[in-house]
């Protein structure tokens, strides 16, 4: 579904990503792991067309995304949930969802606010609350719900676990697993290994802007020495 090869990215003169290759099949959930500053967020931003200078090929659902603007990539089916949530704080929950609304994908039921409120019951109680007056966990749910309103085929999730209370974390993991069960493909950037393990089948590990490991998630989970070498801080 998504094939990335030879992706390089720069911020100004700083060379951030080097020769990144990634592949995600339909309905597959892939974890992108790595320490702070390894280039995980930049990878997602580069996929969305939000990094000014990028080379390499990105093919999504048989379509070359090179040169497409962010909105065109979103329309092609990429659903991006940024790390810092970026909720529109002056807009209510319903208005935030409205910004994300796009026509449904053929053959798939459209996401509606009501369906999303079933997935995230907390949000149902605060439909008219401005985004700026919500807790971090609620904002995280709203950020995911807002992106789902665009009926994406692949979710790009950037650290959805960050700063969440344990109870909310479980809700979030449950919701993402439910989405995966519905056939949505997922690329998840995570620092929280356990959280990623609840969701993903495949693990990629990044360091200094390069992919340094790829394999089944369970394999990495079982190999404690390898995991420490790649991820321990």
């Amino acid at each position: 579904m998504l094939a990335v090869s030879g992706l390089d990215a720069w911020y100004g003169a700083a060379h951030i990503l080097r020769d990144v290759d990634l592949a995600i099949g339909a309905g597959e959930a892939v974890a992108l792991l790595g320490r702070n500053g390894a280039g995980k967020s930049t990878t997602l931003r580069a996929l969305m067309g939000l990094v000014p200078r990028v080379t390499g090929t990105i093919t999504f659902a048989g379509r070359d995304l090179a040169g497409l603007e962010p909105h065109a990539r979103a329309r092609a089916g990429l659903g991006y949930v940024p790390e810092d949530r970026r909720i529109f704080s002056d807009l209510t929950v319903l208005e935030n969802l409205e910004v994300g609304r796009r026509p449904p994908r053929p053959g798939h039921p459209a996401w509606t606010p009501e369906r999303l409120f079933d997935l995230f019951p907390n949000l149902a109680e605060m439909r008219r609350r401005p985004g700026g007056r919500m807790s971090g966990g609620e904002q995280q749910m709203l950020a995911l719900a807002r992106t789902l309103m665009g009926n994406p085929a692949l979710l790009l999730l950037d650290e959805p676990s960050e700063g969440l209370a344990p109870r909310i974390l479980e809700q979030m993991a449950g919701a993402v697993r439910a989405l995966k069960a519905e056939g949505l493909a997922i690329l998840l950037c995570e620092q929280n290994f356990r959280f990623a393990g609840l969701i993903c089948d495949t693990a990629y590990v990044m360091a200094r802007g390069e992919i340094v490991h790829r394999g089944p998630f369970a394999e990495l989970a079982a190999d404690e020495a390898r995991r420490d070498a790649l991820l321990a801080v």
Binding site: E69, H71, A72, A74, P82, V99, R146, G150
Partner: peptide, 8 residues
């Protein structure tokens, strides 16, 4: 963010 949500 508005662009990333598919708005031209």
């Amino acid at each position: 963010m508005v662009a990333a949500l598919g708005v031209n």
